[in-house]
Design a protein around this nucleic acid. Sequence first.
DNA 1: TAGGCCATCTGGTCCT
DNA 2: AGGACCAGATGGCCTA
Length: 138
Amino acid sequence: MKSRRPSCTDSGSESSESDSKSPEKYETSTRRRMAANARERKRMQSLNTAFDCLRKVVPQWGQDKKLSKYETLQMALSYIMALDRILTDGRRHSVPHRQWLDLQFDCGQAENYSCLLGYDSPAGQDFLKKKLYIYPSY
DNA sequence: TAGGCCATCTGGTCCT
DNA sequence: AGGACCAGATGGCCTA
């Protein structure tokens, strides 16, 4: 658990409310606020889980540091556009059915693709370290 | 120490 | 009425 605002508790802002409301109403609103805070925490945690999944799929070439959320979104956008371009170019040049599109990449971050393409085994990752094969599905 | 990033709280708005 | 979502505010942690 990370930092929390010291002035704020899970019970929400108290002084003004306790002055103006009956104890019952105060307790009810306090309970609702706590529940809302807990839901919001859970929602943000699930959002962060989704970001972590996205980080695993997106290339992080030369990045030993974890991508920020903004960088992750930017990288995902670039990555999707690059893959789209590959597919578009493949169609335009009418790649034969059995031909593989051989993309050299020397970034050495092949594990970034493993969960996307299903190469989770060490042998598969070793294979991917040399080449990324994308089979045209058209 | 400043700036970037993040977690959390909070109030508002919309939807069911 | 209550939950989901959002944006603003705030403060902690980390790094250059």
